[in-house]
Design a protein around this nucleic acid. Structure first.
Lengths: 342, 342
DNA sequence: CTGAAAGCGCTTACAG
DNA sequence: CTGAAAGCGCTTACAG
């Protein structure tokens, strides 16, 4: 049914080896031969069988991106950026939805899709760093997220402590003094990392840390943010500002404010983290920490592909694995919009 | 390096055929043999090589979902639902971002990813129905979107004319008389289909169709909705309600209203289409047409898999292709929220 | 530069 | 029920 390499060879009057050479851009082919082969490929509408190629080469030019949920705007935007970055390099991205479950994440670590994929970019949420560190992955693995810095794998993330410090400091700079944090107990450890930056900023400004103002988690969705905001508004002394550990929480918080007849930034200033597109269109528009997702995607893909190219010869990385591990820090900016009075 | 079937067979003391039988759940295997094999698989941490399997069987258990952009909330939510529906059936979904470009869409139609995928669910936006109809696809293809009803391929979509009629009628039912439409010129023909339902509702209510109130397109993003809304507000006689042909346009429209110091539904009632999650959290929350995305995903995947199973024996569907084509209509509900006074 | 041949790891008739 | 063998469509040493 499908045309094969040998059909093309027959049509062009050359050997299969020559056709293969043309397809794989090997040197030492005369322009004339190349033209003949390319004409035959076009006439027969030939497309190489990737299963056969992958079986033979041990490389598929597929990588996986494993995220908790692809419908979550941050991961959807990240997935789009990673797909684009990979496509530029001739690589296809498989997006894997772990649903944040240990089972799904274990599958990622163990199965690696039956050797189809060459490597994986993994944003874990349930599995602990320790377990990931000891995972016996046959393929290169790159970790996303602040929790995994200093581990045994390559790692790309924002400096979350610094970014959280900046977000909190911004709230202080617009005159707020009773600043809450939403999301401290969640996000796969993200909560504790971002709280660290939040507390640091309070202390640097001589403000007291009040644990009753640190709420939320483990959920990081809009409804969780709304619930946390309601909780804060019910306090004897409600906050005058809130740092939400992601934009989804912040959007929920804005909604809860509106439901209570209050508004940001007048009653409570609100800042988020992620800069998902929707935040720009809310009323009020959402101030946020904006990690450079394009940068993240480009560098994560490039680094993983380097590893894949390098690991072709390696049997075992135990010997030199630790030494050449890379931690990349994603640049970010502070976006000041209406929700903090911008 | 990787363990092979033959390693498992050796370990279990059986033939490769028996191991293959166990893996593929074939009958006539004694419980004892099965247990032995399963133990060997577990001990060796064996995972089948999908490239080899796919090469041999001519089936990969991969399908593709080709959408214009995966970061767009509707497609992200749809992708998540399709992935879930497929996973339940042991199928993996590759998400393909065409970026709405003819080149990307042509690649989908032609290349089919080097015979890796067994079939495709395609949401075209640039390529015309005629071109799609004549595409010589080696693999089963299922089309999404109202524009392609009655074509030569299986097709799953909302009854967009009826849904648009309902959305517009709802605006009339709350007393609005000067009702605009945003998105008429875009969305790959979606615009003209939804306008048909919009006009029908106006006529049914004895209202006049005013072409100056029909704006927007080809873009279907938030900023396009905001631009269209500004255009409408600049009219000598602005509308008192707007039907936006998707939620992204509606969210942009809400934002433009807020920027003009106006609000929905007081000054202008706004209704969208798609029911993306974010619409529920905007202030005001967004009324919309809510297609049942789970239903869509389940049925699209099931139908495509039926075709894949059926096409195994077929050489050419030209003979009987037309006759057994299926058009599925996705159920929807009208969600009345704050933006229309709900 | 080209051709003939082996082999990647499976599945599946074909004999037993 | 099991075993030995062919073959899916490529790529790649190996000879020329």
């Amino acid at each position: 049914m499908a045309t094969r390499l040998s059909d093309v060879a027959a049509r062009a009057g050359v050997s299969v080896k020559t056709v293969s050479n043309v397809i794989n851009d090997y040197p030492h082919i005369t322009a004339r031969t190349r033209a003949k082969v390319e004409a035959a490929i076009a006439e027969l509408e030939y497309t190489p069988n990737v299963s056969a190629r992958s079986l033979r080469k041990g490389r598929s030019d597929f990588i996986a991106l494993a995220v908790p949920e692809m419908a979550s705007p941050y991961f959807a935007e990240l997935g789009a950026a990673v797909s684009r970055a990979a496509k530029k390099r001739g690589i296809t991205v498989l997006i894997d939805q772990t649903e944040g479950e240990a089972a799904g994440e274990k599958l990622v670590l163990d199965g690696m899709r039956g050797q189809l994929i060459d490597g994986i970019i993994f944003s874990p949420i349930t599995t602990s760093p320790a377990k990931i560190g000891s995972a016996d992955t046959a393929k290169p693995l790159l970790l996303l997220g602040e929790r995994h810095a200093g581990g045994t794998f390559d790692h790309v993330a924002v400096d979350s402590v610094q970014a959280s410090f900046d977000a909190t400091t911004h709230l202080i700079s617009i005159g707020r003094r009773r600043i809450a944090a939403i999301g401290v107990g969640g996000g796969a450890g993200t909560g504790s990392v971002r709280r660290k930056g939040y507390r640091k900023a309070l202390k640097a400004a001589g403000l007291e840390v009040d644990p009753t103002l640190e709420v939320g988690g483990p959920g990081y969705h809009r409804e969780d943010g709304a619930a946390s905001m309601r909780e804060l508004l019910a306090l004897p002394e409600p906050p005058d500002a809130v740092f939400c550990f992601n934009d989804l929480l912040a959007i929920g918080a804005l909604r809860a404010l509106a439901d209570a007849g209050l508004s940001a930034p007048k009653d409570v200033a609100v800042i988020g983290f992620d800069d998902i597109e929707d935040g720009r269109f809310h009323s009020p528009s959402l101030s946020t920490i904006s990690p450079d997702k394009e940068w993240l995607a480009e560098n994560a893909v490039a680094l993983l592909l380097d590893r894949i190219a390098g690991s072709a010869g390696r049997r075992d990385s135990a010997g030199n694995g630790e030494a050449d591990r890379v931690d990349l820090t994603v640049p970010y900016t502070l976006q000041i919009r209406e929700s903090t009075g911008g």
